[in-house]
């Protein structure tokens, strides 16, 4: 009884883990199959022959790599700018005395209540009148306007003791210097957490880039993959290769940075 329980206890997490990664493994195997192969026995997907020609074909003849780079570019730039502007604003609210501070903080809090999806239609009109549709700016800028980072960072900055700031002031440090060399380094875990959330949000953003891109060289992956598949899906193999090409860099990055990612996410839970 006890033994069977122990086996169950070890087996269950293992089986679930296999179920979770199985579709990804399957995708990788399918992408290695010669094109046009029809397969009725599902186990045959995993057996040879293998070939890399699909990858060569996808990377050489289509824009998939370009879309991958677009996604990375938009994600990275959005993340970097978000970190800069939100930490600057949070610093001002936390550490500088100015009029209407409370009012401005509440004004930022309002933004938390607004789900981005509910303002997409007017946002599109605004972007159109600003002539930033179908451009990198249009892809990036609306993504940095979330006040969540300001609020998280503000509460983090608040915990930096006043004395530290004041003694630095005494030594003649400028405000920017204090922000850059004292407060920011202390806030690293919070910054990492915001960076991860912003990047994942941008990486998975579907509707906005879908609405505003018209040129295929500006597509991000979530937008490009459906267009590719609707035009070229004759079988499983090419779509799965496209899926694999767009996932492999992320999977590799995940293996390298798993600890940091997990830390960043758990940080937000404790804070919240």
């Amino acid at each position: 009884m006890r033994k069977s329980r122990a086996v169950m206890g070890n087996l269950l997490p293992f089986i679930i883990a296999i179920i979770f990664i199985f579709p990804i493994i399957w995708m990788l195997f399918v992408s290695l199959k010669p094109q046009g192969l029809g397969i009725s026995n599902p186990l045959k997907w995993f057996l040879p022959p293998y070939t890399f020609t699909n990858y060569v074909h996808i990377i050489a003849d289509f824009q998939v790599l370009r879309w991958l780079l677009n996604s990375l570019f938009v994600g990275i730039v959005t993340t970097i700018i978000t970190l800069i502007v939100t930490s600057l604003a949070a610093f001002a609210i936390s550490k500088i005395n100015f009029q209407y501070k409370k009012f401005i903080f509440i004004f930022f809090l309002i933004g938390l209540m607004v789900p981005g999806e509910a303002t997409l239609i007017p946002l599109y009109q605004i972007a159109q009148s600003m002539h930033i549709l179908d451009s990198y700016i249009g892809l990036i800028v609306p993504g940095i306007a979330s006040p969540l980072g300001v609020i998280v960072l503000k509460s983090f900055f608040d915990s930096v003791p006043k004395e530290v700031i004041e003694s630095a002031r005494m030594d003649g440090c400028s405000l920017f210097r204090i922000y850059y060399s004292i407060v920011l380094p202390l806030a690293k875990p919070a910054l990492a957490s915001i960076a991860i959330f912003t990047f994942i949000g941008s990486w998975n953003n579907f509707l906005w880039p879908y609405m505003i891109t018209f040129s295929d060289h500006l597509y991000t992956l979530p937008v490009g993959i459906p267009v590719f598949n609707s035009n070229y899906s004759q079988d499983y193999i090419l779509p799965m290769t496209v899926n694999a090409v767009s996932s492999i860099p992320l999977i590799i990055a995940f293996f390298f940075f798993e600890k940091q990612i997990v830390k960043g996410i758990s940080f937000s839970g404790i804070k919240g």
């Binding site: 679930i16 883990a17 979770f20 990664i21 579709p23 990804i24 996604s71 994942i200 990486w203 998975n204 579907f206 992956l221 979530p222 937008v223 490009g224 993959i225 459906p226 899926n243 767009s246 996932s247 992320l250 999977i251 995940f254 798993e258 997990v262």
Partner: peptide
């Protein structure tokens, strides 16, 4: 358990 989360919605 976490791996699927990093995949893109289209994938």
């Amino acid at each position: 358990y976490f791996l699927p989360t990093i995949l893109s919605v289209s994938v």
